[in-house]
Design a protein around this nucleic acid. Structure first.
Lengths: 140, 140
DNA sequence: GTAACTGCAAATTCTTTGCATCAAC
DNA sequence: GTTGATGCAAAGAATTTGCAGTTAC
């Protein structure tokens, strides 16, 4: 389950293990939070000044395709990336300070059992995005 | 709960009731599905050829601010708009045909009870976005 | 009459693409 | 050596903004 093994798996699926990709993957997996493409790019540049934003986007797309990372739309005008967690991994975003809190919640099974309209559908992903105010910003 | 009353409420909150806004609101509320800004614009143009896309965006932003409509990000690169429903209104998107299915599910309360990390937070919105395959496209 | 709204064009932001060069396999 | 990956610049899509003229209140 370590970084190196994941990348090796990626290589076997047809991807090439370039130094740029190793760098990008290590940035995403080292970070405990949710980085957007530009943050990843900025961080990557400090280690490798000539890396380009398109390389970042292309690597992220490839990793996503292979299931190594997940892309989330937290309603902030751009995507966020993180290493893949369980399918029960969801997000709360504070409207005031932008804090992103992650939490686990076994959604799919419950929804499947409680929503007849979805009978016969194959659900491949289910994400919950909550918004509001965190404790510091005035949650009640 | 009718269209006219909602718009009147909007007017009282400081908004002006221009013919463009009435048109835009009627398009969104007449549609049973989820329109994106461009679809709304296209439809509006057939009634009022010189209306501009920015007017559409500005009206939608205003309506959203006033709670008349809801904006959803269904992961398709642009937003979708619909008249506000209950807070338990969620979406499923078919990865193959793009079908958007709406369903009701009382999420917030359950999550609040089951996710200790969110204690003390004020949740103002909670949306579930599911993806997968609909029955026609090969749901199992 | 005044402040808010409109249409238009231009600007922004995020993301993707074309292409010549380069590097992993 | 071949094919996929990179960097750069340019294109694209969605959305926002500046501004002068218009309209609801």
């Amino acid at each position: 389950m370590n970084r190196k093994a994941n990348l090796e798996k990626a290589r076997l699926r047809g991807g090439r293990l370039t130094s740029q990709r190793k760098l990008i993957y290590s940035i995403v997996s080292r970070s405990d939070g949710h980085l957007d493409a530009d943050q990843i790019y900025t961080e990557a540049k400090s280690a490798r000044p000539r890396i380009s934003l398109s390389t970042v986007y292309r690597a992220l797309a490839r990793f996503k395709e292979m299931g190594l990372i997940a892309e989330h739309d937290l309603g902030q005008g751009h995507h966020h990336y993180e290493t893949s967690h369980s399918e029960n991994h969801h997000h709360f975003v504070c409207n005031r300070c932008g804090l992103v809190l992650e939490f686990e919640y076994a959604l799919s099974r419950q929804v499947k059992m409680n929503v007849p309209a979805l009978k016969g559908f194959k659900v491949t992903s289910a994400e919950v995005n909550m918004k509001g105010m965190c404790r510091k910003c005035g949650g009640k």
